[in-house]
Design a protein around this nucleic acid. Structure first.
Length: 879
RNA sequence: GCGGGGUUAGCUCAGCGGUAGAGCAUCUCGCUUACACCGAGGGGGUCGGGGGUUCGAAUCCCUCACUCCGCACCA
């Protein structure tokens, strides 16, 4: 029976149908008690803020490749999908939406606002699922999770309570990074530093009871309203006598003390005098504590000046206050000068607002007891970070880690399970307390929520049903935890990966995965980061609609090496040609093979001719290569090996060489049957090898091949078999290919057209080889366009001589003037060969080389020398 | 300042001790019924500079230059 493929490759006609078929078949859902090894992986949950971008397409394609490969390789495979509530980010998008309606979240109130966010979430999580579906992601949707799901929320609460009970979570008044726009505290790693051309203002502070003035320098003059001291270095001769005296703060007209502080002050910098604002600068805060300076808060949570700044400043924005302060200072003669000054300013990455350091009461995680085992896990190899160079970065960060600010003044997220009564008692517990256990007063819950990463830190086990003690042994946890691999972008190594390792070790006793693969960042063709403002973003869905998911996936896989992954439409276009090639080659194969050929059983190797043994050997080699590279996360090498094999060996050579037999121009019926059987075999295996990279097109074609399994995605993944390896066939076919190439080459150089046919002479040393060339004459004649192949005959004078892969060949051309270009070409070829031979001679003349180099290298050099020598001799004939 | 990368064909990158590779781009020829999203062929590199180790270095070591990314500091 013959099956047919549509004349054109049109992915839109089958991709969605195929995905529905897989899902209906339940192939994404693993068995619960399989009695075979498992492979599990959890998705880095995308933020529910919006649609997936090309970076998501990359990380999810890589995961799907791995998952499909493992599933076909016989593992009981689970890929858990889901989304992250993304506290600040999601709250911001919904607030922006509200702003368009002219209202703020405060107009709605907490409950109604949160309701709005849930509506947003419902809409977007289904959109995200749809996008992943279009990409072909074989995730188990029956286990889809969301970080705010009931079970995951219980896990979060349990972890908070436990860490609190263990003394690892504490509440304290401390200097934190405050975002006046989002009106919440954020953690240290959420602050991004941007270089900015700012100004350095030099201001005079008059010394009390003297006409001396101390000049301080600052980039933030508005904070002077909150100054409570001035510091100098205690060893600085210039100012030592002033320590203990007071200066008068201009504008505010307060007196503040001069203190000596060796930590804060670098006498070499600026004037050597530093104003101290303990309430609005991290270093000043600490200096204030050291020197008993009061903390005077002059900037509020919204970034506007407070009454403490002075009546004329109250309510002014930070930036306006700065202008006013500078104007007044100038007016009153305190402003000495303004220098241009390049410095890094901390901003909130999510909204680009300047961070305001602020003293605030927040919840913290004491991190060191968590970090120490997490460092050890990587050091011992229990967790392997790949590419390995990232381990140094991991250690560097983990060893200098600071306590983690986990409370956020937001409405969207896991509300902190801490309860307070009017008497200041605090209860942290799994169940909401009715009244205060100490004083019986009613209790109210903390309004703050937790940092999003606090919940995503539990993701690998909370998604599998873990909810703390009593809920830590679910069937899914038993079957799939710890997971095997985590694939994610390197940009969230600290935010997420490190925290999962810490939390996993603390709460489950094991690392949540044994391997972490960090993929690069997708950039545009010029290597620039993709961003909406730059207008260079690629929407993965657009690409899928244009060229199909398989072309996109393959492009991503091939490009997936290095830290930056440049991706442009032209690149994707290039690989869509490959998908098209697969389609057409399969179409050709299907025209010739009968699926019933499978019924005859395995291939009888004794019936195979060299060309067939060759392609099977090559296929076997690529099979070994793909499996090896995939286990090392070398998606680029694996996909490239398949590309090379399928296109440049299978299509360009094997199919062309098989055509004379398949089309009945050469060989017996048996030969034809064997050729068809081999064609089927190679196509079948190739499709299975390609399936993890290009799930849709391989399935569509494979369905026509009459396989046993209902879907290619559950057909066995090919593994290399020693019997298929055939070095003799590889060597001989290598020679045939090289001879054909040489003939084509010389033909073109001599200005002959493909219609001109010649006679070819081949000579060799062994009868076996000569017989092979006699049997393969039809291939040479077809592909090199010859009219005769003479094996072991004596070529007449005037023929073109060459040595190819150790075989002497001669091409008999019709009489034709040799062009000057050709003569020049030959001359250059001789010159080049002479040089190469000289270097080969020199190499072998070196006794130390012969003595020290491994024997096979020496042999190789000798063979090369012999070939070059023979070749040179032949080429000289051609002059 | 601390840590980690990178510098190989016009572009993007692989190779990381034994004859310089791929994709794309470019040039020439060819619509040969699987495919013009194709086929055949060509051109193009002193592997950032300098030094060293080695029989042999793009590959290991030192050094310089340029560049990118973290982290820290920045009155």
């Amino acid at each position: 029976m013959k099956e047919e493929l549509a004349k054109r490759y049109e992915p839109e006609t089958f991709e969605q149908r195929i995905y529905a078929m897989w899902e209906a078949g339940g192939y994404f859902t693993p068995e619960t008690d399989p009695g075979r090894p498992k492979f599990s992986i959890v998705i880095p949950p995308p933020n529910v803020t919006g649609r997936l971008h090309i970076g998501h397409a990359l990380v999810n394609t890589l995961q799907d490749i791995l998952v499909r490969w493992k599933r076909m390789s016989g593992f009981n495979t689970l890929w858990v999908p889901g989304t992250d509530h993304a506290g600040i980010a999601t709250q911001m998008v919904v607030e922006r939406q509200l702003a368009k309606e002219g209202i703020s979240r405060f107009d709605l109130g907490r409950d109604r606002f949160v309701e709005r966010v849930w509506q947003w979430k419902e809409q977007h999580s289904s959109e995200i699922k749809d996008q992943l579906t279009r990409l072909g992601a074989s995730a188990d949707w029956t286990r889809e999770r969301f970080t705010l799901d009931e079970g995951l929320s219980r896990a979060v609460r349990y972890v908070f309570v436990k860490l609190y009970d263990d003394g690892l979570i504490y509440r304290a008044l401390a200097m934190v990074n405050w975002c006046p726009h989002c009106r919440t505290a954020i953690s240290d790693i959420e602050v991004e530093y941007r270089d900015r051309n700012g100004k350095l203002y030099h201001i005079d502070y008059p010394v009390e009871g003297s006409d001396r003035r101390l000049t301080v320098a600052t980039t933030r003059p508005e904070t002077m309203l909150g100054d409570t001291g001035v510091a100098v270095h205690p060893d600085d001769e210039r100012y030592r006598d002033l320590i203990g005296k007071n200066v008068i703060l201009p504008i505010a007209n307060r007196t503040i003390p001069v203190v000596g502080d060796p930590v804060l002050v670098d006498p070499e910098f600026g004037t050597g005098v530093v104003k101290v604002t303990p309430a609005h600068d991290k270093n000043d805060y600490e200096a204030g504590l050291r020197n008993n300076l009061p903390q005077l808060q002059v900037i509020g949570e919204d970034g506007r000046m407070l009454a403490a700044a002075g009546a004329e400043f109250e309510g002014l924005d930070r930036a306006d206050a700065r202008k006013k302060v500078v104007a007044l200072l100038r007016e009153q003669g305190y402003l000495v000068k303004i220098d241009e000054h390049l410095h890094a300013v901390g901003v909130h990455g999510k909204c680009d607002t300047d961070i305001e350091p602020m003293i605030s009461r927040q919840w913290f995680v004491k991190i060191e007891p968590l970090a120490t085992p997490a460092i050890e896990a990587v050091r011992s190899g229990a967790v392997q970070i790949l590419p390995q160079s990232w381990e140094a970065t991991y250690f560097n960060w983990m060893e200098n880690i600071h306590d983690w600010t986990i409370s956020r003044q937001l409405w969207w997220g896991h509300r902190i399970p801490a309860f307070h009564c009017v008497n200041g008692h605090t209860v942290v517990s799994m169940d909401d307390p009715a009244t205060c256990p100490e004083c019986g007063q009613p209790m109210t819950q903390e309004t703050d929520v937790l940092d999003t990463w606090f919940s995503s830190g539990l993701w690998p086990f909370s998604t599998l049903g873990w909810q703390g003690e009593g809920h830590d042994d679910t069937p899914d946890l038993r079957a799939f935890y710890p997971t095997d691999v985590l694939i994610t972008g390197f940009d969230i190594l600290f935010f997420w990966v490190a925290r999962m390792i810490m939390m996993g070790l603390r709460f489950t006793g094991v690392a949540p995965f044994s391997q972490v693969f960090l993929n690069g960042l997708v950039r545009d063709e010029q290597g620039k980061k993709m961003s909406k403002t730059a207008g260079n973003v690629i929407d993965p869905l657009d690409v899928v609609n244009e060229v199909g998911a398989d072309a996109l996936r393959f492009t991503l896989a091939v490009s997936a090496s290095g830290r930056d992954i440049p991706l442009g439409k032209s690149r994707i276009q290039g690989y869509s040609a490959f998908v098209n090639k697969i389609w057409n080659a399969s179409r050709f194969a299907l025209m010739h093979i009968d699926v019933e050929l499978r019924d005859a059983g395995a291939i009888d190797r004794d019936q195979l001719r060299t060309v067939e043994r060759w392609i099977l050997s090559r296929l076997n080699d690529v099979t070994r290569e793909v499996n090896r590279q995939l286990s090392a996360f070398r998606f680029d090498e694996a996909s490239n090996a398949l590309y090379q094999f399928f296109w440049h060996e299978f299509c360009d050579w094997y199919i062309e060489m098989a055509k004379p037999v398949l089309l009945g121009k050469h060989g017996s019926d048996t030969d034809r049957r064997v050729a068809k059987r081999v064609l089927l075999e190679v196509l079948d295996r190739s499709l299975r090898l390609l399936h993890p990279f290009m799930p849709f097109v391989t399935e569509e074609i494979w369905q026509k091949l009459g396989g046993v399994e209902p879907s290619i995605m559950i057909a066995p993944y090919p593994i290399a078999e020693d019997v298929l390896e055939d070095s003799e066939a590889e060597r001989l076919m290598g020679a045939v290919k090289a001879i054909i190439t040489t003939v084509r080459n010389v033909r073109a150089e001599r200005g002959f057209t493909p219609k001109d046919r010649f006679r070819l002479y081949i000579s060799g040393h062994h009868a076996r080889e000569l017989n092979f060339f006699r049997d393969s004459a039809y291939v040479l004649m077809e592909l090199a366009r010859l009219n005769e192949v003479v094996v072991a005959g004596e070529p007449p004078a005037g023929t073109h001589h060459d040595v190819v892969e150790g075989f002497h060949i001669a091409i008999e051309f019709p009489e034709k003037e040799i062009s000057p270009e050709q003569l020049e070409k030959t001359r250059r070829e001789i010159e080049k060969t002479t040089k190469e031979l000289a270097s080969a001679d020199a190499r072998l003349a070196n006794e130390e080389f012969v003595r020290n180099a491994p024997p096979h290298i020496v042999q190789q050099a000798q063979a090369r020398q012999a070939e070059l020598r023979a070749r040179l001799e032949k080429l000289q004939h051609n002059q």
